[in-house]
């Protein structure tokens, strides 16, 4: 838009300038991101185990690492768990986030402000600090969650939440949803405020129920923002690492609770099979790129505007 206002003469005169201005950013991106991606692609085609780390040449093995990856049932289990975890978390986050946004829109100014402050404080928490608090809340012996559940009539005395995979993932889901809902709520709320009250009133006069107004007017009107936040949640939840890793630290069995990120970390740092770790990383990168495409397209539209 602004480029159009620059007179053509000037544009021609300064034609080296934009490239010069891009040099530092491009240089750091090439060095810190593009090079590792390239290294990873090359390494994923090699046999690169312990022997290679101690100086043996790494022979090219073609797609063998990828074939192993697809044959390995343990990796499949990790992939399936990751995708399931990611979808469940993304959907639950968006549903709760939209519900809270609608609630913000429905209540008076004071209540809205209270809700917004509550969400903002949760959103602002650094992830590692948040994790230590959640580990403390779910602590098996003296944690508040067990105390509360005992208090309302269940028996959760000394219940260890992190021991069994399913309850481990339940705790992880609660934490991830708690962290991610504020962003969704604020984004959707911004979308809701764009809907004109007249349309709603007209629908109400025509006798449309609250639920019908929501599904027939609200949802279609905030559809673009809903799609974007759902997509971002899926992308972010697919690569969830910190939360899983820190919950594992607090005493969960590693093998049965690994998701993609933590699994790559373990293969890459523990067993030192860089070839396999690289192949899995490339797999994650491709998956992310594919999922990101619609989001990037919508941002490009914004750039063209």
């Amino acid at each position: 838009m602004t480029t159009a206002t620059v007179p053509p003469a000037q544009r021609r005169r300064f034609h080296v300038a934009p490239y010069a201005l891009l040099i530092p950013a491009v240089a750091i991106l090439l060095a810190a991101l593009a090079y590792p991606v390239g290294w990873q692609i090359v390494t994923s085609l090699k046999q690169y185990g312990l022997a290679q780390q101690f100086g043996q040449p790494a022979p090219f093995v073609g797609l063998a690492n990828y074939l192993n990856l697809f044959r390995d049932s343990q990796i499949w289990a990790v992939v399936v768990r990751s995708v399931a975890f990611c979808l469940v978390n993304a959907v639950v986050t968006v549903v709760i986030g939209v519900a809270l946004a609608v609630l913000m829109n429905a209540v008076g100014k004071a209540c809205r402000l209270i809700l917004q402050i509550g969400l903002l404080l949760a959103w602002a928490m650094p992830v590692v600090a948040a994790m230590t608090v959640w580990v403390w809340l779910f602590q098996w012996h003296i944690g508040v969650v067990n105390w509360l559940l005992n208090h309302i009539g269940f028996n959760f005395t000394n219940h260890n939440w992190l021991e069994k995979p399913l309850s481990f993932y339940l705790v992880a889901t609660i934490i991830v949803v708690w962290m991610s809902v504020p962003f969704v709520s604020f984004s959707v709320y911004a979308g809701l405020t764009q809907i004109s009250p007249e349309v709603m009133e007209a629908a109400q006069l025509d006798g449309a129920s609250g639920w019908r107004r929501f599904t027939q007017i609200t949802v279609p009107m905030i559809r673009p923002v809903l799609m974007i936040v759902l997509l971002l949640q899926i992308i972010w939840d697919l690569r969830v690492f910190t939360q899983i890793r820190l919950l594992q630290d607090a005493g969960a069995p590693l093998a049965s609770t690994d998701l993609l990120g933590t699994y790559i970390y373990r293969v890459g740092t523990g067993s030192s099979d860089f070839g396999m770790a690289a192949a899995m990383s490339v797999f994650v990168l491709i998956l992310t790129m594919v999922l990101s495409a619609p989001y990037v397209r919508s941002l490009m539209k914004e750039d063209a505007a």
């Binding site: 991106l29 790559i264 970390y265 990168l285």
Partner: peptide, 28 residues
Amino acid sequence: RYKFKGRQGFVLAVLFIQMLPAEGLFIA
């Protein structure tokens, strides 16, 4: 501020790069 050849490619690359997960890169 400038219209130049490769501008759109750069913007596209930047937008994709910001989506790259650290989890897919840290080994490298």
